[in-house]
Computed example of a mutant assay.
Amino acid sequence: MYHERGIRQSEIAAALSISQAKVSRLLKRAETAGIVRTIVTVAPGVHAELEERLEAGYGLAEAVIVDVEPDADEAELLAAIGAGAAGYLEASLSGTDRIGVSSWSRSVLAMTDRMRPLPTRGATEVVQLLGGTGAPEAQSHSHRLLSSLARMLGADPIYVQAPGIVADPAVRDSLLKDPSMQETMRHWESLTMTIMGIGSIEPSDVLSTSGNAFADDERAQLLAEGAVGDICHHVLRIDGSAVTGEIDDRVIAIPVDKLLRIPRRVGIAGGERKLDAIRGAIAGGWVTALVTDLHTAERLAETI
């Protein structure tokens, strides 16, 4: 009556002239005796076992895997990962989070584009983690991402009014002394989570036209030092170590030590082109959670 016909316990008690408490006890006895068994069927597109394997093997707090067709192009890959990240974020916010965002990431923009305004406030503020100004035709990407995400979450946007990369360390040091940058840096100190794209050394189209990408000779130098990717313009090797030096000293972004102290650090990336960068981000503890596609997840699982 209860499991097969969906009749409520109170109605069963009345029909059988017994107490509702006895109905409850009999249902529990049925489970103990094995008369009633619970079977969970995994829905198509859900890869809980592989997610748990990545979490256990790499020490991740959470892994989210999305289905993507093997022959999907980059636009389809971004759309799927963005949708998965949007669902994860909407389900995991506390309402009091202070979120740092890497604003030149196409993956994070794909996530934002697939979000809907939350019925209640999802976060108190959304803060840029790296310089957001650049060429006018590309700068709208960075500002649109932050303002859209803040609107969806009912949060206050905090912008970085500076470029991501400057000519030399002295220029960066001078910009960091500006009152507006000092205010933004204070917000970096109190972040509770980050949402970050994991970039490859080769920049995306929007980044390459923004004026915030590394020049060809700089990328060659970084590759010679073992670079495989970047997070917030901080370049990393496949073992997770950061590539430091003059190039990194020209980046206007949250410092690595402050980034790694933020409790939740969500990385969003997928595809063969970013596999080594994702490996580096996991190995170095740059991310505590990962949203990626099935094929990339399977490749990562091969080395556990």
Rank of each mutant, 00 (worst) to 15 (best):
K274H: 07
G164H: 01
L77N: 08
E62F: 06
E189R: 02
R53T: 03
S19G: 15
P255E: 10
M111E: 09
E49K: 14
P117W: 13
S94M: 04
V46H: 14
V171L: 08
T184V: 15
S208D: 03
R273C: 00
V42S: 11
H3I: 03
S94A: 03
E246G: 12
V266S: 04
L290M: 02
V256R: 13
G131D: 12
E202P: 00
S140V: 09
L60I: 09
L290D: 04
I252A: 05
V126K: 06
L77S: 12
V108H: 07
P136Y: 11
L27S: 02
T244R: 14
R25S: 13
G270K: 07
A83I: 06
R121A: 09
L223V: 15
H141W: 04
I254A: 08
V42L: 12
L50M: 08
P119N: 11
L145V: 01
P70A: 06
L191N: 07
Q139P: 00
S190Y: 04
P163W: 00
P179N: 00
A170Q: 12
G131H: 13
V228H: 01
A138M: 14
D178F: 10
I262S: 09
V23T: 07
L89Q: 01
R114C: 05
P44E: 14
S17P: 05
A43I: 09
Q161S: 10
D173P: 04
Y2Q: 02
M196G: 04
V206G: 05
G134T: 10
K28T: 13
R37Q: 15
E225L: 14
R299Y: 07
T288L: 01
E202C: 04
H3L: 08
D156L: 15
R219H: 09
M196T: 15
E74M: 12
S148G: 02
T133R: 14
T32G: 09
P169G: 03
G6M: 01
P263K: 11
M152D: 00
G132D: 07
A56S: 15
G199L: 02
S147V: 11
A63G: 09
S148N: 12
I268Y: 02
E76N: 10
